[in-house]
């Protein structure tokens, strides 16, 4: 998620670097944004042995993006996910994910991402690196972010990335279920 946010930031930064028009866009984009639930989603897939995968999404999360008009690399992304809101369409799987087998949502209410760097990789793309913390464990993760638009003070971006769940003490079920969690996120953020 954070990575995606960073990607958005990167998009903005890229726009600034691009030329006069971009520069205008950058100064326009600079500022603080809050991720809105409307138009945002955090989905994930975990591959299964023999094909197929377990699909899920987090229903509740919040976050902010600060775009530094002068130095995109100093932009910041902060995302908080509430694992209690995980949903897979199958109640027994949700209960399992929320239990201490996976998220331990009762004792570990939040999963957080704090960006540490944003690196442009293209006109509209960036890699966002940051610290992901879940169940008391912190690890560095990278996400690919792509800016899909800035209109009327609203940023839209898509973020994707792979996270190894074993790093967060959530490796239950491997190798039947892959250790790799594939994240696909869409964020809509409004100027705060």
């Amino acid at each position: 998620m954070s990575l995606r946010v960073l990607g958005v930031t990167s998009f903005l930064a890229l726009g600034l670097i691009g030329g006069t028009a971009s520069a205008v866009a950058l100064s326009e984009a600079a500022g603080r944004y809050a991720i809105s639930a409307n138009g945002s989603s955090i989905r994930f897939v975990i591959g299964k042995a023999g094909g197929g995968g377990l699909n899920g999404a987090f229903g509740r999360f919040s976050g902010s993006i600060s775009i530094d008009g002068g130095d995109i690399g100093r932009s910041k992304v902060d995302i908080t996910i509430y694992p209690d809101s995980v949903g897979t369409g199958q109640g027994r799987v949700d209960a399992f994910l929320k239990s201490d087998a996976v998220f331990d949502a009762a004792n570990s209410r939040q999963i957080t991402f704090r960006s540490t760097s944003v690196q442009r990789t293209g006109d509209n793309s960036a890699v966002v690196t940051g610290q992901l913390t879940a169940r008391g464990r912190t690890s560095t993760e990278k996400f690919q972010a792509e800016l899909h638009g800035l209109k009327n003070g609203q940023l839209r971006f898509h973020v994707s990335g792979k996270v190894l769940r074993s790093r967060y003490g959530m490796d239950v079920g491997t190798p039947i279920y892959s250790n790799i969690v594939d994240f696909e996120m869409n964020f809509a953020a409004r100027r705060a």
Binding site: A49, G52, V93, P175, I176
Partner: peptide, 16 residues
């Protein structure tokens, strides 16, 4: 089972 949990005897192979 609607949970569709694959069977992998002793993590060796996928049992259909």
């Amino acid at each position: 089972s609607v949970l569709e949990i694959p069977s992998m005897p002793f993590n060796l192979f996928v049992m259909p």
